[in-house]
């Protein structure tokens, strides 16, 4: 998976889930962004979530 989530910083605003073109992300019951079940391999690394996250809580990781 190429997304790194820093849950401590996430405030669950939902901007990342709204703009994700592949609907990879969801907001959990705990009000935190998370990767949706079954979507682990769907990220296309477009970077929209990273670019617009107001809380610096989601990063697109470089491949090892």
């Amino acid at each position: 998976m190429s997304l790194k989530l820093i849950t401590k910083r996430c405030k669950g605003c939902g901007i990342c889930t709204f703009f994700c073109p592949k609907k990879v992300l969801v907001i959990t019951e705990l009000n935190k962004a998370a990767i949706a079940e079954g979507k682990e391999n769907d990220c296309i690394k477009c970077g929209q979530c990273e670019m617009r996250c107001p809380d610096y809580a989601i990063f697109v990781e470089k491949e090892a």
């Binding site: 401590k8 910083r9 405030k11 605003c13 996250c53 107001p54 809380d55 610096y56 809580a57």
Partner: peptide, 19 residues
Amino acid sequence: YFRPGRLPHLWCPGCGHGI
């Protein structure tokens, strides 16, 4: 560029100021 230990910031959920 951010000072250590100062995040998360105080802005509300969805506030654009962080961007």
